[in-house]
């Protein structure tokens, strides 16, 4: 995997123990950590110290997490990973729609977090493989409109290809239903028939690219939120 050393990551969390644990875990991988204990401080540091990524707790006492994401996104594209507790999908969706890149549900382990960070960093790194995107056994050639799984060519409809392309170009990132509907079908809302179409299309893509469509390995479902392309 890529060397994540030399990165600077901002951790915004009001819980001291969580900051401490994140600092220890990230430092051990050669990542330096800037800490912020509230939203205001977090936004300030995110915009002025130019960290390589932001880990943001959604439940801060002083500011709404979604507002923090919006504030940062006004003038920065720094990757944002959200930390949230279970059972609050609407918050997750709102944060992702506001521009966050990914989320982790508490409690999470250090390995998971590092994997997410690495994935984001890899996506942002300048590409060497040209128009061909590779994740695991899946290869997508953007210019040739060609998709292969384990070397075998797969025939996809134009819409199916557009979705795969979108997922590939955002791999590791959670794409909300809303975002996919907007980008692929140009819908600004989420009517049930459009969502049905999305589910059907995803199901069809899985039938074509997944070794076992009953247990997807490539296109993972984020319950109630959206989809992500997974890469081991």
């Amino acid at each position: 995997m890529e060397n994540s050393g030399g990165l600077r990551i901002l951790v915004v969390d009001d819980e001291k123990t969580i900051r401490r644990f994140l600092k220890a875990a990230l430092n051990s991988k050669g990542i330096s950590v800037i800490e912020a204990s509230d939203g205001e401080q977090g936004v300030y540091i995110a915009l002025n110290s130019h960290p390589d990524a932001v880990i943001l707790d959604l439940g801060l006492p002083d500011m709404d997490g979604i507002d923090i994401v919006k504030k940062i996104r006004e003038s920065s594209v720094v990757p944002i990973i959200i930390l949230s507790v279970r059972n609050d999908e609407s918050d997750k969706i709102a944060a992702l729609d506001a521009g966050a890149d990914d989320y982790l549900t508490k409690p999470f382990n250090a390995g998971e977090l590092l994997a997410r960070i690495r994935t984001i960093m890899r996506r942002l790194a300048p590409r060497q493989d040209g128009p061909v995107y590779k994740t695991g056994t899946l290869e997508v050639d953007i210019t040739q409109h060609a998709v292969t799984v384990k070397g075998k060519t797969v025939k996809l409809s134009p819409v199916e290809f557009d979705i795969i392309k979108m997922l590939v170009m955002n791999y590791g990132k959670v794409l909300t239903h809303k975002r996919i509907l907007k980008e692929i079908w140009g819908k600004n809302e989420e009517p049930e028939d459009a969502l049905h179409l999305l589910r059907v299309t995803i199901s069809n893509i899985r039938n074509k690219i997944e070794p076992d469509p009953n247990r997807p390995e490539h296109i993972l479902t984020e319950p109630g939120v959206g989809y992500r392309l997974f890469e081991e």
Binding site: P213, P216, L220, T221
Partner: peptide
Amino acid sequence: LNVRPCDLRDLIGASLT
């Protein structure tokens, strides 16, 4: 309950994941 039509295969797949 946030009830919406769900692809059952997807539901089981996500649980297995």
